[in-house]
């Protein structure tokens, strides 16, 4: 298993090695030590490789991830797994703002809390946060699912499109055009699947409430102008 010590080895070598993985390569497990808040760790992966990062990372860890499984054994800075396409990113600690921003696929699991703007502009990614999320989360969320076991901050789902939001705890306030919606059987099934994929046990889908778009901003109407 190749190990990259970022206190000794430049970031470029790590990312280059990850990008250079040919299909069927033998090295499918990478370890990164001493990340010490470095930015852009394991970005642009495009192969089913497992990357274990021992420590906390800075901005944009696992950015634009495809196929890889990236695990941060620490906390993640802003924009973890931003624009993820597929694969899995797990943050054992907390995540800073913009976690999973614009993500288009794959699964992001945050075992601690996520700060503001979690899932901003999400486009198909599934995000499961074991703790709480901060304000303006899922802002302009287009598609995908955001599951929060804890509480949500202010203006959840502001200007939401078709992303589905499931929150188990309290929601400080809903953003413009975001409303609570009925939890139907299909949603309970969907949620059960997401919880299982994220390794959550002892929590029932029925403990959650579902939020989604009121779709009042879908066609411009002057009487909704206050919401813009």
């Amino acid at each position: 298993m190749p190990t990259f010590d970022l206190s000794q080895t430049p970031l470029r070598e790590l990312n280059q090695a990850l990008h250079g993985l040919a299909a069927g390569a033998n090295d499918t497990e990478f370890e990164v030590v001493n990340p010490r808040g470095s930015h852009a760790v394991a970005v642009g992966c495009d192969a089913p490789v497992a990357v274990s990062i021992r420590g906390s990372v800075g901005y944009y860890c696992a950015g634009m991830n495809s196929a890889a499984t990236v695990t941060v054994h620490g906390s993640a800075g802003p924009g973890v797994a931003e624009n993820m396409m597929s694969g899995t990113v797990v943050v054992e600690g907390d995540a800073s703002q913009y976690a999973g921003a614009t993500g288009r696929g794959g699964l992001l699991v945050i075992k601690g809390n996520a700060a503001s703007r979690c899932g901003i502009s999400m486009k198909g990614i599934d995000i499961v946060v074991h703790g709480n999320i901060g304000h303006m989360s899922a802002f302009m969320g287009q598609s995908g699912n955001l599951v929060v076991l804890g509480d949500a901050g202010e203006a959840l789902g502001d200007s939401l499109y078709e992303a589905k939001l499931f929150v188990r705890g309290s929601v400080k306030s809903l953003g413009a055009d975001c409303v609570e919606k009925e939890m139907r059987e299909e949603h309970l099934t969907l949620l059960a699947g997401l919880l299982e994929r994220a390794g959550v046990t002892g929590v029932e889908p029925s403990e959650f409430r579902r939020y989604g778009s009121a779709r009042k901003l879908y066609s411009f109407d002057i009487d909704n102008a206050d919401a813009y």
């Binding site: 010490r36 808040g37 800075g58 906390s75 907390d94 800073s96 700060a115 503001s116 304000h135 901050g153």
Partner: peptide, 22 residues
Amino acid sequence: SEYRALVDLPGIDGARIWEPEP
């Protein structure tokens, strides 16, 4: 401004770490 600035502080591993609220 970033977590990196804090990593060498004594006992940081046991610290309560958070982002200030808006």
